[in-house]
């Protein structure tokens, strides 16, 4: 798993690629990456998962942990370009109502500016 971060209009966009699973934890985890952004004072975070090949429950746990950490600091975390399967899993688990999920990055970024 690889994570690269870019700042887009005050939103920290984390580009995640590879496999987001417990078997592929090398170095920094997604949650650690998000926490790092939070420590840098970022409060709007977008996780772009468009290049993620595979995600398991560990990966979802990382996303949720990131969500909790961001929420605790009064920030917002949103998801963009998740796979169809993950979308279905979010539906079944009710997370679709908890997490903000967008089809593309642009609309996700726009949603941060919307009141």
């Amino acid at each position: 798993m690889q994570i690269t971060t870019q700042d887009r209009s005050g939103v920290a966009v984390l580009y995640v690629s590879g496999e987001l699973s417990r078997l592929h934890v090398t170095g920094q985890t997604l949650h650690q990456a998000v926490k790092s952004q939070l420590e840098q004072g970022k409060r709007n975070i977008l996780l772009n998962l468009g290049e993620v090949d595979f995600i398991d429950s560990f990966g979802v746990g990382e996303i949720l942990a990131s969500f909790t950490s961001t929420q605790n600091l009064g920030g917002k975390i949103k998801l963009a370009r998740i796979s169809r399967k993950l979308d279905f899993v979010f539906m079944v688990t009710g997370l679709k109502r908890v997490l903000d999920v967008f089809d593309n990055e642009t609309s996700a970024l726009q949603s941060f500016t919307r009141r």
């Binding site: 949720l64 969500f67 909790t68 899993v89 079944v92 688990t93 997370l95 908890v98």
Partner: peptide, 21 residues
């Protein structure tokens, strides 16, 4: 998928997130 959903529901972080809701 079924396994994944089950595992997610077992996550403490998931429980906490849903309980908040």
């Amino acid at each position: 998928t079924e396994t994944m959903v089950t595992e997610i529901m077992d996550l403490d972080v998931y429980r906490k997130a849903m309980e908040a809701r």
